[in-house]
Design a protein around this nucleic acid. Structure first.
Lengths: 189, 189
DNA sequence: ATCGCAAACTAACAACTGTTAGTTTTTTTA
DNA sequence: TAAAAAAACTAACAGTTGTTAGTTTGCGAT
């Protein structure tokens, strides 16, 4: 992420702290100390603790929304689209793992932006589901339970943020390819 | 779970609240109100908020540890063992989805029991990994990246608690079978 | 009836919470 | 170098936090 402005530095540091302890357990004094300033000074740059969370989560959620729209506009088989989705998740998670943590575990603290977030998530999941349904109808994907397929892929992709930071030896493209192979072709011989 | 004693009622209700808002965001007054009593009354039954979290998380973690030991003692192919692991996760998650939420998202607040929890988790993951490695050596499992296989399966299994409560039409055995098929054989035709 | 006890209550504590107001210091601009 | 803007500071607020102490209530067993 880009720490150009002081506000951005604060948001990035906040995301890192939120990842370790969760939104509710991080105090404004914790955040200030981590930045080497006093809590009150934070308010020269940000409106509230809540606004920090909104910034972190919604910017990522909108990135996913935009990525999904691009994938839907492209021509391509369902399997091809699923591969693009995998790539989208790997890309975003590797660029902003800390933010992904907040999105995954602290979205329920979004207060007045909660409905907006949930609508983005809902749309995303529906698009994802429809790609799978299409694939089954076209004979590209096995006729297994759609919900289980969706849940299984989404669970793995949503957890990438936990895992990418500690396996830096694997590059993004390798990881995407490896994940595609496993999620789509399975693991048995 | 068994709400026989008042203490158990408290722990079960706490797990439900922790699932919705996370450990740090749930106050003892929230918990008391949900039980129809005052916060101070909780302390006739439990030692501290922290002790509630420990009870919830460690009892499940020990259940997983015991389950894994049983699986390792049985004879069986690697694929067979993976299927047993899937069944173990489905069983525990469906019996105690709320507790699984705490285990997944609030383990970092365990304080003096944190090291113990991490050692259990570490051992579990190592056993899981070794089963996969065995399977590859025996030619039962494709020679893909072991860490990606492990991560992919664990992510899905660890997220079951999010998903089981809202799909009650699918029974436990059907879900196990469906998950096995998808995680092991993949989804492409 | 009364004893014993589990389980509730009221009242209060010291520490911590997010945030504001007002002021001073540092950096950038002209 | 002086003015303007950015970014830090101190001090304090009102509300919330987990928890303790001491007391009262309801109920089954004697």
């Amino acid at each position: 992420m880009k720490p150009e402005t002081r506000k951005n530095e604060i948001i990035i540091k906040a995301a890192a702290l939120f990842k370790d302890k969760g939104y509710s357990a991080v105090t404004m004094r914790d955040l200030a100390t981590a930045l080497g300033i006093k809590a009150a000074s934070l308010y020269n740059h940000i409106d509230s603790k809540q606004a920090i969370l909104q910034d972190i989560i919604l910017s990522i959620a909108e990135e996913f929304t935009a990525g999904m729209e691009t994938i839907l506009q492209d021509e391509g088989s369902s399997i091809n689209r699923l591969n693009q989705i995998i790539q989208l998740h790997v890309t975003i998670a590797s660029r902003n793992a800390d933010g992904m943590a907040a999105l995954n575990t602290d979205w329920m603290h979004l207060e007045n932006k909660l409905d907006y977030y949930l609508s983005l998530r809902d749309t995303y999941e529906n698009n994802f589901r429809n790609i799978i349904i299409d694939g089954i109808e076209q004979g590209e994907i096995k006729d297994e339970n759609v919900e289980v397929i969706l849940f299984s892929m989404l669970s793995t992709l949503r957890s990438l943020y936990l895992w990418i930071p500690k396996k830096e030896d694997l590059n993004i493209d390798q990881l995407s390819d490896s994940l595609s192979a496993i999620l789509i072709s399975g693991i048995n011989t």
